[in-house]
């Protein structure tokens, strides 16, 4: 290459190609996304965060929470479950259908409805089972369920998708899991007091936690007539001196409001799932993955 002009033209073309591919094209595809109704409902998703939670996003950013926590649930695939919801009047025929499907007849299979009949089967088998049961006069539903270690840990009901971040600026996806994923921490841990205690002294609520305490988000002050509503109840070494209380600062309260607002638990067109009743509650009481 003899001429500097050719050199810079080459560089410009190479950069322009990647610019068109990874800036222009995503802008055309993702930049026009808008709030959409959730699948099977009329509520628009995602909603802008309310005021205090929006302030909390700034606290989350300022303190680099995304250096240790991701906000993106990974989904490996989907699977289907078949749930028997009604038996109908011809129980003998339903039991025949059970035999045809290779299901166990032990433990009164037609009682305790709704009841899981098949879990983790492919869609074709689930559809066949549903049709067979309905032909026998019973009613069964086919539930689509996301799979993967994150789902199994209860970190979410589906994988994260681009629409989940529509209201975020900046998007704080995170790239490290030195702490657990927080995409649905508002669903899993809906108690503000739990979060305040966790920020003040993580070991109080999570045994063997490796998270550093964030005591600078709290202040110790003299009790004015009666303790504040959000004063932390602390024992032992952590208890403040008599007549004093530990309360969250504005930043601390905002951060907790933001954490409680982190919920991406609704089914979308691009991320479908059909959660059986009680599934979200189960995820909320996750005992495997403590934050």
């Amino acid at each position: 290459m003899r001429h500097a002009g050719v050199l810079f033209l080459t560089g410009f073309l190479a950069m322009s190609a990647s610019w068109a591919g990874f800036i222009l094209a995503p802008q055309l595809q993702l930049g026009r996304e808008s709030m959409e109704p959730v699948t099977g409902g009329s509520e628009l998703y995602p909603q802008p965060r309310p005021g205090l939670a929006a302030q909390g996003a700034a606290v989350y950013r300022a303190n680099g929470c995304n250096q240790c926590h991701t906000r993106q649930v990974q989904q490996v695939g989907v699977t289907t479950d078949v749930i028997l919801t009604e038996v109908g009047t011809n129980q003998a025929q339903v039991l025949s259908a059970f035999k045809l499907l290779g299901l166990s007849l032990a433990d009164n299979p037609l009682t305790g409805l709704p009841r899981d009949l098949l879990r983790g089967v492919d869609k074709k088998r689930a559809d066949f089972a549903q049709k067979t049961l309905e032909d026998a006069g019973a009613k069964a539903s086919v539930q689509v369920r996301a799979t993967g270690p994150d789902i199994a840990r209860g970190w979410g009901l589906r994988g994260s998708v681009a629409r989940d971040y529509l209201q975020d600026q900046p998007i704080l996806l995170g790239s490290q899991r030195l702490g657990p994923d927080l995409a649905n921490i508002g669903v899993r841990k809906p108690d503000a007091t739990w979060h305040l205690k966790h920020l003040y002294a993580p070991d109080l609520v999570v045994t063997n936690s490796t998270m550093p305490p964030y005591r600078f988000l709290f202040e110790t002050r003299q009790i004015n007539q009666s303790p504040a509503a959000d004063a932390l109840v602390l024992d032992g070494d952590l208890a403040p001196a008599p007549g004093f209380e530990v309360v969250p600062t504005v930043e601390g309260r905002a951060l907790v409001a933001y954490l409680l607002s982190l919920k991406s638990d609704v089914p979308l067109f691009e991320a479908p799932f059909s959660a059986p009743p009680g599934a979200q509650a189960a995820a909320g009481t996750n005992t495997v993955a403590n934050p």
């Binding site: 610019w19 800036i23 995503p26 993702l30 681009a162 975020d168 600026q169």
Partner: peptide, 26 residues
Amino acid sequence: TAMLLLQLWPVRGMAQGAVHAWFLAQ
């Protein structure tokens, strides 16, 4: 490019992620 599209006139949602990933690779 990155400062304009991420901080001065930020693009929406995950389009920010694309700009950020492009910048990091560059």
